[in-house]
Design a protein around this nucleic acid. Structure first.
Lengths: 204, 204
DNA sequence: GATTTACGGTACTGAACGTATCGTATCATA
DNA sequence: TATGATACGATACGTTCAGTACCGTAAATC
C-alpha cells in the first residue's frame, strides 16, 4: 500500500511517530464501525488515538482524506481479481465478492459515506478517482480483455460500458436502497450482460 | 404537483402566505443554479426571498427537504415516459432524456448534491425514496411491461434488474465521473440490454 | 549544543443549521 | 367589532464541528 498521507519534511528534526500514524488509522477504523462517516468527529479520533488534533492534521489535510485511507486499505484487501477461466465466472465472482463486503461488513456503510463526501469535496474527489476508481477499474478491465483473448466476446466490446453494466446496477442499489443486493440480482445482472455481449440478435 | 411542505395548522389565525412560499422556492432554485447544494445556505435563501428564516422552517423542516421540493418539480417536469412502440426505442429515448437534463442543466448538479445528502439524512432518505425513486421507477416499469405485452421479451424478465441495468450505469458515471455520459454510451448500454433480454445463448 | 521538526494540550475561529423570542400583521369566529 | 389564534420579519442565540494557532516540551540532525 503506497503512502497516502502528507509526506513529512525530510531531513533534520524529530521524525513523525509511526506509532501515532497507526493509532490514528486504527481509531478511525474503529469509529467508522461504531458511528459511520458523518457521525465520526476528528476530536474523537484524536482522543481515541491518544493524539492531538494537530498530529492528525499534520498528516491528513481533511477528515475525508483520513477516512479514505482507513477505508481504502480495508476495502481493497478484501477484493481480489477472480480468474475462473470464463467471463461469466469472473463477472459473477467479482460482483458476488463486492456484494459480500458491502452487505456483510461496515465497510459498505463507509463506502456510501465516502461517495457522498466525494460529491462535495473536489480535492477528495481527485484522490478518490486516482486512488480508488481508476485502479479498481484497471483491475476489472482485465476480466474483459481476457475474455476477448479467449474469443468469448468480440474485440469491439466497449470495456468501460461493460464494467458500468456490471457495477452500475450494484452501486445504484447501494445508494438508492430501492431493492436488495441479493445473489439472485447478481446472477440476473451477469446473465443479461453475458447474453448481451455474446449474442447478436440483429444490430451491432 | 402534490404538496410537500409541512401542512399549516388549519382553521383560525393568519394563513400562510402563498407569496412567501413561491418566493422561497424561487430563491432556492436560483441559488441552486448559482452555487449548488452544499454552498447554498438558508440565510441566503431567506435574504433572497425577503423572508425570515422562521418562515422557511415553518414549512420545511430541513435544508434537504426544501432543496428536494425545488429540485423535484424542476426535474420531473423535464422527464416524460416515452412510447415509441419498441422497447429499444423506449429505453434509448428515456436514457437520452435523462442524460440531456443531467448534462445540460444545473439540475444534474443538484441531483448529485441531493443523492449525497440522502446518504446522511435518514428522514430525507425516506422522502427521497417515496417521492422520487419509487414514482420514477413505477413509470419506467411501464416500459418493461409494455414490452412484455408486445412479446418483445419473455415475461420472466425481472423488471427491477432491467431498470437497474439501464439507469445504474448512468448514475454510476454521474457520481464517479470516470467516463462521459455520451450518446455512444447510451446506445451501447441499450444495445447490450436489448440483446441480453431478447437473446438466449444457452442458459435462462 | 544549536537547530529543526514533531508532539500533546488547549484555546480559538468560522461557518452554518436550526431554535427561540418579540412585537406586529392578518385571518376566523363569536 | 372584539378576541383569540396563527403567521410574519427581525434578530439573537445555541450547537456542532472542521480546521487553525500557539504553547512549552521531546526527539532527532548537524
Amino acid at each position: 500500500m503506497t503512502e497516502m498521507s502528507t509526506p513529512p519534511k525530510i531531513g533534520r528534526g524529530r521524525p513523525r511517530s509511526e506509532r501515532s500514524q497507526l493509532a490514528i488509522l486504527h481509531a478511525t477504523t474503529q469509529l467508522l464501525e461504531e458511528r459511520g462517516f458523518a457521525e465520526l468527529t476528528m476530536e474523537e479520533v484524536a482522543a481515541r488515538a491518544s493524539v492531538s488534533k494537530a498530529t492528525i492534521y499534520r498528516r491528513w489535510p481533511t477528515k475525508g482524506t483520513l477516512v479514505f485511507e482507513a477505508f481504502a486499505f480495508d476495502f481493497l484487501s478484501r477484493q481480489s481479481l477472480p480468474d475462473t477461466g470464463s467471463l461469466r465466472g469472473d463477472l459473477l465472482a467479482s460482483l458476488r465478492s463486492w456484494i459480500r463486503v458491502v452487505k456483510g461488513t461496515v465497510t459498505g456503510r463507509t463506502l456510501v459515506g465516502l461517495i457522498a463526501e466525494v460529491q462535495r469535496d473536489p480535492e477528495l474527489a481527485e484522490l478518490w478517482s486516482e486512488r480508488f476508481v481508476l485502479p479498481v477499474r484497471a483491475q476489472h478491465r482485465l476480466m474483459i480483455s481476457r475474455a476477448i483473448e479467449r474469443g468469448e466476446i468480440p474485440s469491439t466490446v466497449d470495456a468501460d460500458v461493460a464494467m458500468d453494466l456490471l457495477y452500475g446496477p450494484a452501486y445504484h442499489r447501494l445508494l438508492q436502497s430501492h431493492a436488495v443486493l441479493s445473489d439472485r440480482f447478481a446472477q440476473s445482472v451477469v446473465d443479461t450482460i453475458i447474453n448481451g455481449l455474446t449474442c447478436d440478435s440483429k444490430s451491432r
